[in-house]
Amino acid sequence: MIKAKIHSIQNHDNINWVEFFAQKHKLYMLALELDEKASINQEVVLAFKSSECLLSKINLANTFLNTLHAKIIDIFQGQIITVIRLESEICTFETQISTFEFLEQAYQKNDFVFAYIHPSALFIKEYVC
């Protein structure tokens, strides 16, 4: 989970583009519905499904994806799915990838990777009072 503050909200035809600041990082959320509590400077807790995170050893330099540079701190390898726990500057989180991808990319504990989260995968889990 990521603690962040809402920086801006754009709305058109009930589609919302929300920009957040989490420490020095900008994050973006694309949402069809937005709670009426959402407002500029509102503090929130953001989350995403662990299966909706793409890993790469190289920086894809795509400004439309949320990018976290993170260190692999633990690996739980299964026959089909591997769960990788990562630690970034702003949060600790897990991602699920296929074990085939895990073996193909040869990820190891203490490797640094780029984690990419599509804006439509990010959601507001909680509003901080």
Score class of each variant (00 low, 15 high):
Lys37Asn: 15
Ile90Ser: 11
Gln23Glu: 13
Ile75Asn: 11
Gln96Phe: 02
Leu60Lys: 12
Arg85Ser: 10
Gln77Arg: 14
Asn66Phe: 00
Phe114Lys: 10
Lys26Tyr: 06
Val113Met: 03
Ile58Met: 09
Cys53Pro: 05
Glu36Tyr: 08
Gly78Val: 05
Asn62Trp: 01
Ile9Gln: 07
Glu43Pro: 02
Phe48Val: 04
Phe76Leu: 05
Ile40Tyr: 07
Thr99His: 06
His118Tyr: 06
Ile15Asp: 15
Glu19Ala: 14
Arg85His: 10
Ile84Phe: 12
Asp111Lys: 13
Val128Met: 07
Ile9Gly: 01
Thr67Ile: 04
Ala121Phe: 03
Leu55His: 01
Asn16Asp: 01
Asn62Tyr: 05
Met1Leu: 05
Ser50Lys: 15
Ala4Pro: 08
Gln42Lys: 15
Phe100Thr: 14
Phe76Gly: 13
Asn14Ser: 14
Leu122Ile: 01
Thr95Pro: 01
Thr99Asn: 13
Thr99Trp: 06
Lys125Tyr: 02
Phe64Glu: 11
Ala31Arg: 15
Glu89Cys: 04
Ile80Gly: 09
Leu55Ser: 01
Leu65Gly: 05
Pro119Gln: 03
Leu32Pro: 13
Ile72Tyr: 08
Glu33Asn: 15
Glu87Asn: 15
Glu94Tyr: 07
Ile117Lys: 00
His12Gln: 15
Thr99Ala: 06
Arg85Asp: 11
Phe64Leu: 06
Thr63Met: 04
His7Ile: 06
Tyr116Pro: 00
Thr95Leu: 04
Phe102Gly: 03
Leu32Arg: 15
Phe20Ser: 00
Ile73Val: 11
Lys24Phe: 09
Lys3Phe: 10
Gln108Asp: 04
